[in-house]
Design a protein around this nucleic acid. Structure first.
Lengths: 190, 190
DNA sequence: TTTATTTCTTGAAGTAGTTCAAGTTTTTTA
DNA sequence: TAAAAAACTTGAACTACTTCAAGAAATAAA
């Protein structure tokens, strides 16, 4: 089932049938069990993951030993550590499945080969990463301008299904406040 | 003086002399005076700016009416609002020169034409935006894991010249604390 | 130079969040 | 279906920061 990725690509560029075939031959869907990691701090990240089904998250372990989620990825998103990937340096991050998930894991060497064969895919990855960067800028804006309570209500009104989908403590850390405080916001005790 | 941009591009891809010529014919350096804006909240962002000389920043005005800097750009960086640029929607941001600066302003229509003529530039922009996204991820990590004091000392040890280069209150908002608190950190009164 | 503007500093009072610890509920595993 | 593990809740004490207000210093403009 690479259809999802092919459709996603074709939202941004047009592919010839032969190119679709080439692509399909390089891609494999693989399953990742809930809580399994595809990247661990200190490793070099050599793979980009396209999420076909499920949910992954990127997180760090802070000085106090607790996890903080920096980013979630769901269906139709790419997730990776671009800095580690591009510069071939050890990553600062963990990437883990939040649910049982299916991803297309694209190795750097495979991707480079595909890009040589189908150069117009550069355009696809260019647009996708520009959008991701734009989203990261908006995320920083929200973190800077809203109070904890506002951040919770904002995500809850924009993405109510998503809020139900992930554990509260992960969402709390993603919104940069404690799980306890989240609990108080939800019960109106703040 | 497009040499800086051409050099930057050629760090990532190889250009033929003819391509360099094509490119040069499309580019113009323009000057932006300190405090002038190249983007104002509500406008649609149609331009990417490559900074040849000087410093620009992206900021917002928060609910209390004060400015918060989300991003700085210096020599060899691109600055724009990618979401507004790609989706043709009004921007949430201001982009302003912090110093008298020189930039290469690349209009969307010009860029699209250049990309058709020199498709391998897609690769350049792909890599640049992936790096930017990686940097944004690291920025979120620092904001999440370090205290205000740690963030100040970190930037001060990593980029001491830069810390001297911009007003303290702008840097404070970039690091997400108040100008007053920055002053106290610096004088050791915290 | 003088004046105006911008930037930086300082202390006092306030607050939006954290931390801890213990208990409860829900989900998963055997 | 029992037991274990994971996730959520609650209140009390604390703290890393903010806000305000006023003045001092530095920079830019006239």
């Amino acid at each position: 089932m690479h259809k999802l990725l092919l459709d996603h690509i074709q939202k941004f560029i047009h592919l010839e049938p032969s190119e679709i075939e080439t692509l399909e031959s390089c891609l494999d869907v693989c399953k990742i069990k809930k809580k399994d990691h595809v990247l661990i701090e200190g490793q070099i990240c050599n793979t980009m993951y396209f999420i076909v089904k499920g949910c992954l998250r990127q997180y760090i372990i802070n000085a106090k030993g607790s996890e903080q989620t920096l980013q979630f990825g769901i269906e139709n998103w790419w997730i990776t550590d671009y800095l580690s990937y591009l510069n071939h340096v050890p990553t600062h991050f963990y990437i883990q499945a939040v649910e049982n998930s299916e991803v297309i894991a694209l190795e750097k060497s495979t991707l480079e080969a595909i890009l040589l064969e189908i150069p117009k895919l550069e355009r696809y990855f260019r647009i996708v990463s520009q959008k991701s960067f734009g989203a990261a800028q908006m995320r920083i804006k929200f973190l800077f301008t809203m109070s904890a309570e506002e951040r919770y209500h904002h995500i809850n009104s924009q993405f109510p299904e998503f809020v139900q989908r992930v554990p509260q403590y992960m969402l709390a850390s993603y919104l940069d406040f404690s799980a306890e405080f989240m609990s108080k916001i939800r019960s109106g005790k703040v």
